[in-house]
Design a protein around this nucleic acid. Structure first.
Lengths: 130, 130
DNA sequence: CTCCGTGCAAACGATTTGCACTATG
DNA sequence: CATAGTGCAAATCGTTTGCACGGAG
């Protein structure tokens, strides 16, 4: 099963990267529709799934209702705005936390660790007058 | 807006606590139905929402998955089975990670930090012959 | 020319909501 | 007795899928 580089796939990928953000499928759909008005939401979903499967983009499973997709497929941590649900990447020195130093949980085989910061993003701080 | 302790609310809370697990609304619905057959799923949803709002139970939100509710409202970390999606609590010495030592993210006000372990739970390990 | 990808609409699973009725405090 | 909570059904939200057609390799 080889990947074909279709017009819609190319634009979806380009718009996600250009946004520099962590978009939901429908946010990206809105962006892409401006360029390719007849594209369907199902195509956006299918391509995001395929691209993340292929390791070209990242898929975020963090707090919130909708999935978000990350232009950067590399391993890194996220900060999540508790007000507007926006997500940003950040690099963290994990203070010595890694697979080898993770605590053992009785009965479990520990395979990984997600660290997620919560906070208030610049825009929301401004609106709250902080 | 005061809370009334209705029969259904009491049973929902009791069953969640007795389970000692992190149940989804419909898992809990199945349990509660055995005791109170005419209860509706909507009531379970409404009560779980209200109880977590009130800080009596905890709510777990992982994007793209069903919400799970935690009998324990206290701050703690979770380990999550990547095979069956079961969740357990665990206490972690956070290796010095806390609000004061969290890295600053430019523009953000950092308010918290979630650490989530991924792993394979005892049951799934058995089934996989590990 | 082969299939992977597309658009569309319908299906789906999880959750929420409007409404008339019930029962707690 | 005021009004929070309930059961039911329908609505909604995010996402997936079946199908016939279109286009990349």
């Amino acid at each position: 099963m080889q990947l074909r580089m279709t017009n819609q796939r190319e634009i979806i990928l380009r718009e996600l990267r250009q946004s520099g953000r962590h978009l939901t499928a429908d946010e990206l759909y809105d962006l892409v529709k401006k360029i390719m008005p007849r594209i369907s939401l199902a195509t956006v979903y299918r391509n995001l799934e395929i691209l993340s499967e292929a390791g070209i983009i990242g898929k975020l499973e963090i707090s919130g209702r909708q999935k978000r997709f990350d232009y950067d497929p590399e391993e890194h941590d996220h900060i999540y705005c508790v007000v507007c649900h926006r997500v940003d990447n950040f690099e963290l020195d994990r203070h010595g936390i890694n697979i080898d130093t993770l605590p053992q949980v009785p009965g479990y085989t520990v395979t990984g660790c997600r660290l997620e910061l919560l906070g208030i993003c610049p825009e929301c701080r401004k609106q709250q007058g902080q």
